[in-house]
């Protein structure tokens, strides 16, 4: 473990907590893409199947459980408890266009052709594009609540910090995982225009409005 990965994990946890609190406190999931939340739940489920078979550390197991519970809890709040506030008219990204190609690619490019490894690879590839429905929804509505932009900033920062972690691990341990690195770079690049808007607008107290 290194500080970059730890701060990255905490940023990821912060993002998930921000979103959960936003939905719970405002009793509304307006402006939030339920499809992205479904994809994130799928990412955690397919990645953490080794939760009980491959013990890494208490921290690792506890965080996996927290991610699973909070992401499924968010999906539950969006599609059941506060379903009436779910904006399905703007959350129209065809996620099958993500899941199918990612599923195919995970069979073609992986470290090991075993069920657990293919599911892990699927999870890594899926996570890199899972935010697309959310970014698409914001581009359709043309704006995002400030709390949602904080959520996205924390979520985008987590994988950017993981990239720093991979550089650090490469130089200190000689460790590198090309699948995770390439997918992590794609994932972080997808946030770039949002990062620009966040830093130039939200941090100056303005509402996040996409140029029409």
């Amino acid at each position: 473990m290194n500080v970059f990965r730890l701060v990255g994990d905490l940023s990821h946890l912060l993002a998930i907590i921000i979103l959960l609190l936003k939905i719970w406190k405002t009793r509304s999931c307006a402006g939030v893409s339920g499809k992205s939340q479904i994809l994130f739940s799928l990412v955690f489920i397919t990645r953490y199947l080794d939760l009980f078979t491959n013990f890494i550390s208490v921290y690792n197991s506890v965080m996996k459980i927290i991610y699973l519970v909070t992401s499924l809890g968010t999906v539950y709040l969006m599609y059941f408890k506060f379903k009436a506030t779910y904006d399905s008219n703007h959350d129209t990204f065809r996620i099958e266009f993500l899941v199918v190609p990612v599923g195919g690619l995970s069979f073609l490019v992986n470290h090991d052709f075993t069920p657990l490894e293919i599911l892990w690879t699927f999870s890594i590839y899926l996570e890199s594009v899972a935010i697309l429905p959310q970014l698409f929804m914001i581009s359709k509505t043309g704006e995002a609540e400030t709390i949602t932009s904080h959520y996205l900033f924390a979520l985008g920062s987590y994988r950017a910090l993981y990239i720093v972690n991979w550089v650090y691990r490469y130089y200190t341990e000689g460790f590198f995982d090309l699948i995770a690195i390439v997918a992590g770079c794609v994932q972080t690049i997808l946030y770039c225009d949002f990062f620009y808007l966040y830093i130039t607008k939200v941090l100056k107290g303005k509402q996040l409005k996409l140029p029409a």
């Binding site: 994990d9 965080m63 991610y67 892990w120 972690n165 590198f176 995982d177 995770a180």
Partner: peptide, 10 residues
């Protein structure tokens, strides 16, 4: 390689 020790990252 990354996987034989089991993926140690979240």
């Amino acid at each position: 390689a990354a996987y034989d020790a089991g993926h140690d990252e979240l």
